[in-house]
């Protein structure tokens, strides 16, 4: 089979596509980040580290930190909610679990913009929550709910929660219930059993969920734009502005590069961790 070139022939068109439209463009960002910005928005082909240095300028770096903060908060909330939901699903009778899981994930399949928009409907000044408050007789001034940091966090949690439920459910459903019972039998309370047995055994699922929500949130551009309402910028919006309004491509590329580095670092760290978790199980009688 090794001398047979026909499989390679089948793969070639797709590989050319992926190479030309994914690998090269991504590499391009790396190069672009080291060029100088032209006077009127173009690119001047001289090497510089200025763009990269500018990323770490407090003015911009604090946007980075802020994005990381919001992404971290969203990921943490999503993990708490998602883990609780996955745990509850796994505690239900086995025959109901596939259906519960299906409905937990169903919203994930609908359009991201639509799901985000649903929160505008709920949170806006004439929205359902305000109406509800009036209806129960609340007359006072209501705080601005839409176009706030909280709204962005809610939106991110809402959009990515199903993913966390899935990633936490996987290890929870694989637990041997007798291991929990063994802990109870040896004198541990339900809470101690959760803390010392269930939780440690399901950390990989939580880590996967956290990393993905964090990565998808920190580079998010839609949710801050729609639910943050330009009140503040996240890194994705900053990048967007460099490419489409400020016309400072090299700086945009430098921002992207750092963003991609953070994302890749996390994703790879998570992959290594998942690998180690499953590798340990594979090696029997070693």
């Amino acid at each position: 089979m090794s001398a047979d070139r026909r499989p390679l022939l089948l793969m070639t068109p797709a590989m050319i596509w992926l190479f030309g439209l994914m690998v090269v463009p991504c590499a391009l960002i790396l190069v672009l980040a080291f060029f100088r910005r032209g006077l009127y928005g173009g690119i001047e082909y001289t090497w510089t580290l200025e763009n990269l240095a500018l990323v770490f300028d407090p003015l911009y770096f604090q946007i980075f930190l802020k994005s990381a903060g919001i992404a971290g908060l969203s990921a943490a909330i999503a993990c708490v909610l998602g883990y609780a939901a996955a745990y509850a699903i796994a505690a239900m009778p086995r025959r109901h679990q596939p259906m519960l899981l299906f409905f937990a994930v169903l919203p994930f399949w609908s359009n991201y913009l639509v799901r985000t928009y649903a929160w505008i409907v709920l949170l806006n000044r004439e929205g359902l929550i305000v109406n509800l408050a009036r209806w129960v007789g609340y007359e006072g001034e209501l705080p601005q709910m839409l176009y706030s940091e909280q709204a962005v966090v809610i939106g991110l949690v809402y959009n990515y929660l199903p993913f966390v439920i899935l990633s936490c459910y996987a290890p929870l459903s694989r637990l041997n219930p007798e291991v929990n019972e063994a802990s109870r039998d040896l004198g541990a309370s339900a809470w101690t059993t959760f803390r010392r047995v269930t939780l440690p055994m399901t950390v990989p699922g939580i880590a996967t969920g956290f990393v993905f929500v964090f990565v998808l949130s920190i580079g998010n551009f839609v949710t801050p734009a729609l639910l943050g309402g330009g009140q503040f910028q996240m890194i994705g919006n900053l990048v967007y502005a460099q490419f489409l309004t400020a016309n400072d491509w090299p700086f945009g590329a430098a921002l992207s590069m750092v963003l991609i580095a953070v994302m890749l670092g996390l994703l790879m760290g998570q992959a290594v961790m998942a690998d180690r978790a499953s590798g340990g199980k594979g090696a029997r009688d070693g």
């Binding site: 007798e178 063994a182 039998d185 440690p200 055994m201 199980k281």
Partner: peptide
């Protein structure tokens, strides 16, 4: 105390 049929050792 019960010794389980599956042993139920804590894998971690």
């Amino acid at each position: 105390n019960l010794m389980f049929q599956s042993y139920a050792l804590f894998p971690h």
